[in-house]
Design a protein around this nucleic acid. Structure first.
Length: 852
RNA sequence: GCCCGGGUGGCGGAACAGGUAGACGCAGGGGACUUAAAAUCCCCUGGGAGUUUCUCCCGUGAGGGUUCGAUCCCCUCCCCGGGCACCA
């Protein structure tokens, strides 16, 4: 008998699948579709275990759904624009295109060797002209709809990446990609008006409940940050202007004792009187710096402008301050300050000796300004508020808003934390923004028939600015409107734009007349199951949702949400090893518990996300070489449920390999018994045969539910392991009936395992005399008859504690079970001398006798 | 500070709708096979105790509650991971 040889088997089957075009799909209106998508990778050079895990999870579902009769779209591609390619060009002189395409070639080969069932005929590469031209086309559509606009704004700037970052791309004041501290610049920037969809994006979060992880929805809700309140218009004393403030607490309007403006508020220069006027620029700059540095907590500072505002509700005059804690980006950049009922205002008021006025009294409390040590922000009864005094504050809120609306001095309003999406990037390796600036005609979009604006290949890469700004041949152009000389936009788009619609392009990737075929989108969309990392919870997933809605409103598609269900898989982690002298170590730099270099004792742990710098990575290539793709897949699927972090273990992958060998031997050892035999198809069985068949069908049921309903691949695999164990222990008979039952069992093991380990199962399927490919076999259905039991085990509890177990006929009545339980010797001992107060019976499971 | 997850044997993890806690795997122990080792196959493996073919007690982060019965529901608290955080 030959041994399990994964390298040989895997290579062979991958070749056959490819030749036969097994994974190719087309629209088939007569069949139910299933669109399964995993987040496409950035072509960084090699795949890592995170990819292996992500794509293994996806492949199980793709193959499973296919076997269940669905027409499965399972595509793959490359998020191919981005900074690393350009940095490689600057550092090593390799052209970004070459770097990218070479990486893609290598990674594609790696994915092929994993045996993933992708329809490669639909491959997408975002840096290809035939892809990005449609990104440009969308840009123009958005521009025409008023959803893309340009404005001068202070933007996040990463010095290392030499480009701006969207708000979503700044984490703890640092660049999401390189970790550099983020600075600020004032630049004209292109924006997508994602805020126009704030409300719909938020509502969508409610509709996605249960289908997306709650965690992701919470993060998106937080990011959108809706708050309800009112806008109030405060006239400025002695001037024509009014200052609008946003507040969530219109019920405290009578307690406003001053107003504060953001240092960046446009009215500041006008309102400020001497002596501050002279120093204004330097003061503002210092505030800006402090605020932007995002120091955990900086002191609240400010100064009096010398001007006064009038509270429109009371007619009272209140001083206008400039305060460093007021953000220009949120609300209107101006606030009314109610120090008695807002902690920030309270702190500011204390520092500058501004008065407090209590307008909300808590239940049973008596606040007095003189004794307050902090603001009271809770609910209560309204006081000192003219006609509104005496009301509950919640009620007062509504009435004050209504009153202000009647008088035209304010209105109910909603404010969002979400900002528009800044998409300009001052870099080369991205989709050029299709805009031309003409002195005469202004901002002119490139006409559709002149698309794409091609990214010039022959440019020079130097540290600093984008090569496009040096490239006359690129930026010197003529105005499409007047024909005079004009200048092309040299910024490129954020690469998140490319990934905001790639899932649409997969439906008809070779379409030349448009970004996709409408009928193809109608057939395939939405994505039924999307799988990827949690790191895109707000970035990619929010942008893609926005883009989908925007394209819908332009009339291009008919879907509201791109991803019907979302699975966010956990990280792949491994224990780190550290030497006090030499830092992080690779496993083979350690001898026992000592460092090979310096001989010191090393520290093991904790378990952390795999990263090159911590030297705790495991290379997929090595695993494929040593154990094969099937083992690598099996381990990542078995070690933890998909949404949890996975801890890599060298012993664990050995165990997975051992199991596959065990399956191999089971089938090969059974071969003489099952060759030429047809599998058992139902009918009466007794004894061990009945028991084996029961277990076979129980396993089918468990695996089908675990994979199809719960995505618990680890328990699905363990169910098959149990069946394999049972088959090993079964003393197999040589009669025809035993052989056919064995055949059914063996075929079931192979079929159930196929989505997890496609190569070995394909090989075994063929070896037992069946016709491949397995993917075109129907997923087994369980036989209810086989699952029916004649006798069942019922647990007997006395006062809630397990005291005995009895076997009763499956159709026994409660009365019969009760009789049997009460006559059980052990049970008798526990209820002796006590009265039976109650009996709880759970059919076929448990009976609890309450005695006492 | 606020909001989401999560805390179960030596370890990764099971227990799906409140009903036998610890499936399956890893690690460990024992046995079979072998001249031997590896591989393989079989058995044992939460802790404690006893009258040890069996039985009892404890046990799912801690304490309380609801219930015939709680890993699961409720309250209070502790710890770990993640997100947001001067957002008016």
């Amino acid at each position: 008998m030959d041994r399990y040889n994964p390298q040989e088997i895997e290579k062979r089957w991958q070749g056959i699948w490819e030749e036969e075009g097994l994974f190719r799909v087309e629209e088939r209106k007569d069949r139910k579709k299933y669109y399964l998508l995993e987040m496409f990778p950035y072509p960084s050079g090699r795949i890592h275990m995170g990819h292996v895990r992500n794509y293994s999870i996806g492949d199980v579902l793709a193959r499973f759904m296919r076997m269940r009769g669905y027409n499965v779209l399972h595509p793959m591609g490359w998020d191919a624009f981005g900074l690393p390619a350009e940095n490689a060009a600057i550092e090593h002189g390799v052209h970004p295109a070459r770097w990218t395409y070479e990486n893609i070639a290598y990674m594609k080969e790696q994915l092929r060797r994993m045996g993933f069932s992708y329809d490669w005929s639909r491959e997408i590469t975002t840096c290809n002209e035939d892809y990005y031209r449609w990104g440009q086309w969308f840009f123009i559509k958005l521009y025409e709809k008023g959803l893309a606009y340009r404005k001068l704004s202070v933007v996040n700037w990463c010095e290392r990446c030499q480009t701006v970052l969207a708000n979503e791309q700044v984490e703890d004041g640092r660049c999401w990609r390189c970790g550099e501290e983020v600075g600020y610049r004032e630049l004209p920037q292109w924006f997508f008006r994602i805020t126009a969809y704030a409300e719909e994006l938020l509502e969508g979060c409610e509709r996605l409940r249960g289908a997306w992880p709650e965690k992701v929805l919470t993060m998106q809700r937080n990011w959108i940050g809706r708050s309800e309140g009112a806008e109030v218009f405060f006239p400025v004393e002695g001037r024509e202007v009014k200052i609008t403030v946003f507040t969530t607490r219109p019920d405290t309007l009578y307690g406003a004792t001053f107003m504060a403006l953001s240092p960046e508020h446009p009215l500041v220069p006008d309102l400020v009187e001497s002596p501050y006027k002279r120093d204004l620029p330097s003061i503002l700059e210092s505030y800006r710096k402090a605020a932007r540095a995002r120091e955990v907590e900086y002191e609240k500072e400010g100064f009096f402008t010398g001007s006064y505002a009038v509270n429109p509700l009371t007619g009272e005059r209140i001083p206008i301050y400039v305060a460093n804690f007021v953000l220009m980006e949120y609300g209107t950049g101006a606030i009314m300050c109610v120090p008695a009922h807002d902690q920030r205002d309270f702190e500011f008021a204390k520092r500058y000796g501004l008065p407090l006025r209590v307008v909300i009294q808590p239940e049973g409390g008596e606040l007095t300004p003189a004794t307050m040590e902090e603001a009271y922000e809770g609910d209560g009864r309204v006081v000192n508020s003219g006609p509104f005094s005496g009301l509950q504050n919640r009620e007062a809120m509504k009435r004050i808003i209504r009153y202000m609306e009647e008088k035209g001095i304010g209105k109910g309003a909603v404010s969002y934390r979400l900002r528009d999406w800044g998409i300009s990037r001052q870099r080369y390796w991205g989709t050029p923004i299709p805009i031309i600036y003409c002195d005469g005609c202004g901002t002119v979009p490139v006409p559709e028939d002149q698309l794409p604006v091609i990214l010039p290949k022959d440019v020079e890469f130097r540290p600093g600015g984008s090569p496009l700004t040096q490239e006359r041949g690129f930026y010197e152009t003529t105005c499409p409107r007047c024909g005079k000389g004009a200048r092309r936009e040299t910024d490129t788009m954020d690469t998140f734009v490319d990934s905001s619609w790639y899932f649409l392009r997969y439906t008809s990737p070779h379409e030349e007349k448009g970004p996709f075929r409408k009928d193809a989108v109608e057939y395939w969309m939405p994505v039924d199951q999307y799988i990827g990392g949690i790191e895109h919870a707000v970035l990619h997933l929010l942008y893609a949702r926005f883009f989908t809605k925007a394209l819908r409103d332009i009339g291009l598609i008919d879907v509201d949400e791109p991803f019907a269900r979302l699975l966010t898989q956990g990280m792949v982690c491994k224990e780190i090893i550290r030497c006090p002298e030499d830092g992080y170590l690779l496993p083979d730099e350690v001898d026992g518990d000592r460092c090979r270099r310096c001989g010191r004792r090393v520290e093991k742990g904790p378990v952390e996300k795999m990263s090159k710098s911590k030297k705790n990575i495991v290379d997929p290539d090595e695993m494929i070489e040593r154990y094969g793709a099937d083992t690598t897949r099996l381990f990542t699927l078995f070690a933890a449920p998909p949404e949890r972090d996975l801890e890599w273990s060298d012993e664990g992958i050995e165990g997975a390999y051992r199991f596959l060998n065990r399956v191999w031997r089971l089938v090969m050892d059974s071969l003489p018994l099952i060759e030429g035999v047809s599998p058992f198809r139902g009918g009466r069985l007794d004894g061990d045969l009945k028991e084996i068949r029961y277990r076979v069908h129980l396993t089918i049921k468990r695996v089908t539910e675990d994979v199809g309903e719960r995505f618990h691949f680890n328990t699905a695999i363990s169910a098959v392991m149990e069946l394999v164990n049972a088959l090993y222990q079964w003393d197999k008979g040589r009669d025809d009936l035993s052989r056919s039952v064995l055949r059914e069992a063996v075929e079931t093991v192979i079929l159930l395992l196929h989505p997890f380990v496609p190569h070995i199962t394909e090989e075994l399927w063929k070896r037992i005399g069946n016709t491949p490919p397995l993917l075109e076999r129907e997923w087994p259905a369980y036989d209810e008859e086989a699952l029916r039991r004649e006798r069942v085990l019922v647990v007997v509890q006395v006062n809630g504690r397990v005291r005995s177990r009895i076997e009763v006929p499956a159709d026994a009545t409660e009365e019969e079970v009760r009789e049997a339980a009460l006559s059980d010797e052990k049970v008798k001992g526990w209820i002796e001398g006590k009265g039976i107060r109650k009996v709880v019976y759970v059919p076929k499971r448990l009976i609890n006798i309450v005695a006492g």
